[in-house]
Every structure is written in C-alpha cells, then in structure tokens.
Design a protein around this nucleic acid. Structure first.
Lengths: 345, 345
DNA sequence: CTGAAAGCGCTAACAT
DNA sequence: ATGTTAGCGCTTTCAG
C-alpha cells in the first residue's frame, strides 16, 4: 500500500485543505475570481497554496469538460527540411508564449499520410490547424472548415477552398532570379521543378515562363517525378546531360537543388562557368558550397508570424458571426540572395 | 438550431441504435467480446454499425478513464538536425504501427527548456518518454522514473540514473577515425568538440586521446562554447588559424563541422592538402561537399529500432515485479565512411 | 461570495 | 450474455 505511487494533488484536495469549495478554487484558477466576486484575500490564499503544493490541473479532464485542448496541429511537408523546420520552430515558440502547444507531423507530400494525420488531429481534438497541404486533401480540410475549426495554410493553398493562407510571391521570385541571370549574360536558362500541381510550384514556374516569354527565349522545363532518391538524381542527371547548351539552371525547391548539385558534380561541370545555378530557399549547404549558391529566399520569420497571428486571432474570436468569416490571404515577397553561383566570371 | 454543428456520434448513440447496452459496445470495441462471452454475431453487428457511421471514440474521455493516452513524448536536441530528424522519423513510423503517437520537441540543448518540455509531457500524461538529455535534467527524469513511467534515453545517457539507454561507441568511432588519418600519413591531428560534459562528447574525445597517447602524439583539443553562430564560427576560425601546423582535424558533431568547413573556406585552405577533415554523423552537405567529407556515421536505423522496441516492451509489461526493473543499456558501433577529405593525395 | 451538483464520453466492475 | 452504474478530474450554472 505505502509503495503505491504518490497521488497527484487534485482540485478537491486543495479545496478541502483550504476549507473552501471546489468551485471557488476552480474559479480562482481560471481567473474568474473577480467576476464571481471572490475576495482578493481568498483568491491569493488559494493561489499561494496551489503554488506551494505545485498543483497542476489535469489537462485531460479539463479538455473533456471544456472541449478545448489548447493544442494546435501543425502538418508540414517535411520537418527535417530547414525551411519547414525554421518556420515550425518559430511558430512553436510564439504559440507557446500564448499558451498553446504545437504537435507536428510530416506528410512527406503523401496525400494519404496527410489525410491520416489530419484525422488523427481531429481525434486528438486539436483547437486549430496549420497545414502545408499536399494535393488531394480538400476533403479533409473541408471537414475542418465545416466544423468551424480555425485553419491556416501556408507555403501553398487550396484554390477551391475558402481558407486563410500565407504564401510567397513565387512568380515574382523566379522572375527576378531569371532577370538576374539574364543581366549576367546567361541566356539559355533551364527550370527544374517537380511534377506536382501545388500552387507554389505552379507560381514559381510561371515566373520563369514569363521571363522567357518576354525575351522570346526558349523554355526548357523539367518536371521531376518525386519518387526515390536514385530515380530523382538520375532524372536530373539526364536532363542536365541532355541540355549541355544551357548556361544556367533554376531549381524550384531546395531539395531538387541538392540533387542538382550532386548531378552537376558527377558530370564535372563547373559552377558558374559551365552552368550557373540558383535555388529556392536558403540552406547551410548553399551558403557553404563552393561556389556559394544564389538563392531565392523566403521570409521565414514573417511567414511564421503571419501564420500564428492569424490562427491565434481566430482562436480568440470564434467566428460566430455567420458568413462574415473574412478569409485572410497573405502574399509575402521573396528576396534574391546573390552569391557566386550566378555571377559571370 | 439546425445550423448547429453536427454532433459527433457517441457510444451511447450506437448502443441505442442497436438496442444493446453501452457496455456491450464498449467491450466489443476494446476487443473484450470474447472474454465477456458476447456472441460473435452481436460483436460483428456492433463492429459493422460502428464502421458504417464512422464512430470514433473520444480519446480524451477514454484517456481520462483509463489513464492511458497512447502518446509517447520524444525530446530531442534539435529536430532539424538530420541525425535526430531521421531517428525521430523512424521512431514515429514504428510507434504509429503499434498504435502509439509521438509528440516531439527540441531542447536546443537548453536545460531549462528541456525541463519545461518534460514537465509539459507530464501534464499531457504521455505514456512513455524518449529523451536525448542535455546536462542537468536528472531531477525531472528521476521524477518520471519514480512514477514508474517508461523512459529510454539515446545519443547520451545520465550516468547517475538507472535508465534504459541506447548510445554508440563514440570512443571506438573516434579512435578508428584517428587511426585512419594516421594510416594516411597525417600526424598532427586536432579534435574540435563542444564544452559540454555530455557522455557522448566525452566518449568521442576519449577515442581521440587514446589514439594520440598510443603514438605519443601531441593532443590539440578545442572545446567550443556553444553560443551564437558568429561566436562559434569565430572560435573555430581562430583555433584553425592558430594551429596551422596541424594537418588533420576531427569534429565531434555535424554542426561543428559545418562551421569548420566555413572557417576553412574563409582561410582558403584546401581539403585535404592543407587540412584533412573528418566529421561525426553523415549529412547531405558532407556527401556533396567538394571534396566529399569522411564521416563517422551512426547507425540511425538501429538506434531507432532499439529505442522504440525497448520502450514499447516496457509499455506492454508494466514493471510491477518490484526492483526487477532490468535496465537495458545498448551500445552500438559506428562506421567510418571514408571519402576524399581524409585521403592523402 | 460560496457550495452542491450536473455532466463532458468512456470503461469496467458488479449485477443480473 | 448483457445491462447498470460508479466514477476519471474538472468547469460551471444555480441556489443559497
């Protein structure tokens, strides 16, 4: 009997000890002392004792009762990708300060996994969602929307769904990168992207198309099918080999660039002499690579701030006001960080 | 009234619909139909209807009642570090298959943050912990131990605490790396590590010391104080500058190597001609760098497998049997992946 | 100002 | 074989 685990203190214990009612303790703990006209003296006495014994309310019971978990579900493409890792880290930090916890998961851009994760979050009764949606999750997101649970998408959005979202102006980002290459005298520019129809990918491609069209230059676009590493590497390798007359290449995401650098090295091509390179997203590798790689950087801090601000705002003000659910769509600018890989030597 | 959110189906609803008792439904759902001698026919009828309406039990209520959340708390140093990201990903995958969910957080090696996280997990009633402990969290871990909640540490352990842990043989790993350098004819080898007292760091250093002592070579060890990026970079930069007579250098972690490569590039030193380099942990950057960097790789898959197996085992068999709490300590081997950065040209 | 009491949705003795 | 019922720990009216 005595070796039994020491029981956690319950609200009941502290009420009994102070010889007040459970309700009083609960009210004080939830900051409703004033409106329930509980004397400051008593309130303080409660707080003091609570602190003394280190009482922590049972979250499960609290959530069951209130229907609020104070947990936000964050679904990203890949938490080990520095871009998502940084945004997630900032979101977590901000949310934490405002009393929310984040639980995150990676979809690896797999639709069925994403569906599973969203369902799992529903089961866990998260109060809100932050999602980087792969294609085909419209249905799950609709369900969330219908249940009036706050959602903010980022990096890309679902055109058919009225949700809040934060994205960057990828069209402009790529366009500027292309302009920069043209100014440096590179004229035969290729664009390597994925074969996905996600909005951010389409936008980035669009910027390339636009820049090429303006100058009446030939477009060389490679849509890589994202499967296993070897296949991707081989694919990019051949594309580069088959387009040896190109003098510059823009990759639409950081991981494609990584494969690209490997393929370029395999073919012993020199950057930027044989081929100039520009990538999306900054990364240790790009900064330290020899030569350093020019990147179209996304404003990670601003993305994180907008995401969490909008979500927390919705969490505070449940949109009861009928259809006045003003959707917030934020488009942020990218910035070109010029390094050696795109400078004519 | 009608615009109200559609209510979730409750166990009560399904019991009423089938005209059976709530208990029957609950028993069937929890696989206790057989032992409660519920007819197969009924059981199937229940299951069929549950599936039809897509009933999902309320986890919160279930957890409150059973005291089990089926959630495992994973505390790593930095989830965006490829080493931890990979291990975490594998752990998550395995746990998921066995019905457990993982919620993870990064400590950034900050003791107070780690304490906070562990406390948060306690509040959330996780069923078990997987922790990469920074220094000074002995107290929080003791609390978990005392409450008989399963814990597995990895990457490093807490010498004073009887916990399960999975680590690699860092002493041997570094020793082999040093041997390799010596065989290649490098004789003036430096070792760059952090100033932390964590077991894995001490072990790695030990391997270096041992190799140097065996040959009676001078030891040049730099203990970098991990603060902000600029400071770290500057620190490593000066160390390298002050030891220009060194012909090889071993870094005790992947992130130190990244700063190291930057510092080496700044000083326009050529690898391996001016300085051979070996790093701990594999990484895209090391594989793709020019020249490719030799690494002491950790068996990430095996680490993950051991961690989750031991934890799930404990979760299945609550160690009631008094002090028979057999501690599991697993030490795995590292493997040296030789690349150009450590080959005499 | 405070206490009693009704649940939140589910599980698992304990009855039948 | 199946139903009844007492909670898990907390919040929140509603009457004092």
């Amino acid at each position: 009997m005595n070796s039994k685990v020491k029981k956690r203190t319950l609200i009941h214990d502290i009420a009994r000890h102070l010889d007040v009612s459970i309700a009083t303790v609960s009210l004080v703990l939830n900051g409703k002392a004033k409106q329930s006209r509980i004397s400051d003296a008593l309130a303080e006495r409660v707080l003091a004792y609570v602190k003394e014994v280190g009482y922590k309310p049972n979250h499960l019971a609290k959530s069951l009762r209130t229907g609020k978990t104070h947990v936000i579900g964050l679904v990203v493409e890949d938490i080990s990708n520095p871009f998502f890792a940084t945004v997630a880290w900032m979101i977590e930090k901000q949310a934490f300060e405002r009393g929310y916890r984040i639980i995150y998961c990676s979809t690896d851009n797999d639709t069925s996994k994403a569906k599973e994760l969203i369902t799992m979050f529903q089961d866990r009764h998260v109060d809100g969602y932050i999602i980087v949606p792969p294609e085909g999750v419209e249905e799950q997101v609709s369900v969330i929307l219908r249940e009036q649970i706050p959602v903010v998408l980022f990096d890309r959005y679902l055109p058919d769904l009225p949700t809040n979202y934060i994205v960057v102006d990828g069209t402009k980002g790529t366009y500027e990168a292309a302009q920069h290459l043209l100014e440096q005298g590179f004229t035969s520019i290729a664009f390597v992207t994925t074969d996905s129809k996600q909005t951010q990918m389409e936008a980035r491609l669009q910027g390339y198309v636009q820049a090429m069209e303006e100058r009446g230059l030939q477009q060389r676009v490679k849509h890589v099918n994202i499967t296993d590493s070897e296949k991707i590497l081989a694919d990019i390798h051949s594309f580069i080999a088959e387009n040896r007359d190109c003098d510059a290449i823009i990759f639409s995401t950081n991981y494609l660039s990584i494969y690209g650098l490997e393929a370029i090295a395999q073919q012993k091509l020199r950057i930027p002499d044989d081929l100039a390179v520009i990538s999306y997203d900054d990364h240790d590798l790009f900064r330290l690579y020899t030569p350093a790689i020019t990147v179209i950087a996304q404003p990670v801090e601003s993305i994180a701030k907008n995401v969490i601000d909008i979500l927390l705002d919705q969490l505070k003000h449940p949109s009861d006001k009928e259809d006045t659910t003003a959707i917030q769509a934020v488009v942020l600018p990218t910035s070109l960080v010029v390094r050696k890989s795109s400078i004519r030597s």
